[in-house]
């Protein structure tokens, strides 16, 4: 199972990288969110996918799952939710203002006015 999940994380990173390398805003933004998901899956897998009871007081169980990675992933997901939505709005505004969603046309020039 861990092997499968590692491969999945790799596939997500690969797909995300492919999307980020394209030229359209919306593809890039979706690509970054896929990369973040890859990182989250990786975090989940790295902590071990053992089966165990939830780590709550008063529960009789031989093994407990490690709660820390889940807390970490929740935090990371919330952050990536916020950043992705900001990024969406930014991409939209940039498209409105510059009139293009092609990153090739957004190359920096030396003039700053």
């Amino acid at each position: 199972m861990e092997i499968l999940m590692s491969i999945l994380a790799g596939v997500l990173f690969m797909a995300g990288t492919y999307m980020v390398l394209s030229r359209s805003f919306i593809r890039i933004i979706i690509g970054t969110s896929i990369i973040s998901h890859g990182a989250h899956v990786l975090l989940l897998t790295m902590a071990g996918l053992k089966t165990g009871a939830p780590p709550l007081l008063g529960l009789e169980a031989g093994t407990y799952s490690d709660p820390l990675p889940q807390a970490l992933i929740l935090t990371a997901i919330v952050i990536s939710f916020g950043v992705t939505s900001f990024f969406m709005v930014l991409g939209y505004r940039a498209y409105k203002e510059t009139g293009t969603d092609d990153t090739d046309r957004l190359r920096g020039t030396d003039s700053y006015d």
Partner: peptide, 9 residues
């Protein structure tokens, strides 16, 4: 706020 910002425009 996010939805409104996108929706209004």
């Amino acid at each position: 706020t996010i939805i409104q910002t996108i929706g209004e425009d």
